[in-house]
Design a protein around this nucleic acid. Sequence first.
RNA 1: GGGCCGCUAGCUCAAUUGGCAGAGCAACUGACUCUUAAUCAGUGGGUUGGGGGUUCGAUUCCCUCGCGGCUCACCA
Length: 497
Amino acid sequence: MRDLNEQQELRLEKSGRLRQNGIDPYPRRSRRTHATREVVDSLDDLAAAGQEVIVVGRLRARRDMGRTVFADIEDGTGRIQLLCRANTLGAEGLEFLKSDLDLGDIVEVRGVPMRTRTGEPSVDVREVRLLAKSLNPLPDKWHGLEDVETRYRQRYVDLMVNPEVRDVFLRRARIISEMRRYLDDRGFVEVETPVLQPIYGGAAARAFTTYHNALDQTLYLRIATELYLKRLLVGGIERVYEIGKDFRNEGTSTKHSPEFTMMELYQAYADYSDIMVLVENLVCTLAQQVNGSAQVRFRGQEIDLTPPWSRVPLRDAILQHTGVDYEAYPETESLAAAVREAGIETRPGATRAELIDELLDNTEPRLIQPVFLIDYPVELSPFAKRKPDNPSVTERFEFFIGGIEVGNAFTELNDPVDQDERFREQVAEREAGNEETSQYDEDYVNALMYGMPPTGGLGIGIDRLVMVLTDSPSIRDVILFPHMRARHRLVGQLSCS
RNA sequence: GGGCCGCUAGCUCAAUUGGCAGAGCAACUGACUCUUAAUCAGUGGGUUGGGGGUUCGAUUCCCUCGCGGCUCACCA
């Protein structure tokens, strides 16, 4: 036996001893009759009836008074106190609890609900059974687990001892299921499109590459679901959405994860202003359903999600926050000079799109209250339809809450000739060295050539939305197992002597 | 990738100018029949992230590697 510390070794020995005495430390099943919460909620009725219950849970605390031992167990619904007395549980049962069980073990107890003198809801225990032996000691009962690296790497421990972490992930699940319900109720059809794609597109990002042996084919992990979903509109599904992972081969940050969850939806016979109404109603509804309020606190700021949200042209927002009016500089060189003059560093040789992006990056942190920035330049938006009165601008918006971009939407480009040109521009840029442009997707253009209805489309970064609605400062706090560099092994051989 | 910060017992954290590596919880032994961070008495537990260097002596100073956090860059 290697790599085990003193406490682990002791617990493993106990486990072996139990086995020798004919007690399986990992028995098949439990006879649970009540969740701890059910017992607490109807305690007085159960106590009055003197009804026996069987509850289960992880042993979280033990207070040994000699002939009386108090213990707390915790299941998925909450905690309850156990009152274990020599004259009701018996000397043998009490000794089992004191000597053979450890904090962290999963146990089953049979007993009668009651209140102690201080009024604490408890179970007067008649029988204790071990359901699963815990070999690892729990973190500090008061401080819990704080080390960020361990919390991410061993999320199971984090969830075990930090209730607020569990709450975040329960709310995340709720947000997603309520979002599904909201869309289903409005006639949207949920679909699944390929994750492995021969050509990736629909966003500006580098892809992960993989390989299909049997087909002898290079495949990419999708960076967006966009182009497949819009094929479905060509096929006649008028309202469609997908919730799933996208993958982008990029660095991480508090707002970026290489794999993240995206909801994309497309609605035929709608445009981007219809989508704005949908977004503000959806997000506000989710906040009310999950948090009970349209007001959220995020990074110390009070945010009001009540519709309508303001709609501000991108140009105006950037002008207001950086002092640069990019439309006043039609040439890349003059815009670059203006950006530099505003005190923003730029990459030498940056394209116009990159410069505007840079200006937006400097604007984004100031967008605390929910806002739609509308009307993006066409060079930033290869799949968005141009505005009728100004072909250099598209009907596109991004929305921001709490200083981060949460979603992106536009009136979809359905003109195959225009789309063909945009793809060509993207390809030209790629040849000029920009790896984050879209590949030419011939089949997609072919689909458009059959005719796609006028359509409004939307993408929402689910992780970021969850960040805002749960006041989580980092995207890693809303992803159960965030990506980490590989680490050496945790346990050695667990051979039992 | 750059900059800054961090890594000490199972967990949470100390350690003066470079001078015997400590505390609380957890664990172990004992006392205690209504406690709830139970209490009281006692005991064990360390490759101070790894490697190298300076020094009589390194948790402390230097170099290097690893992992993480923040931040900038990259990137929606």
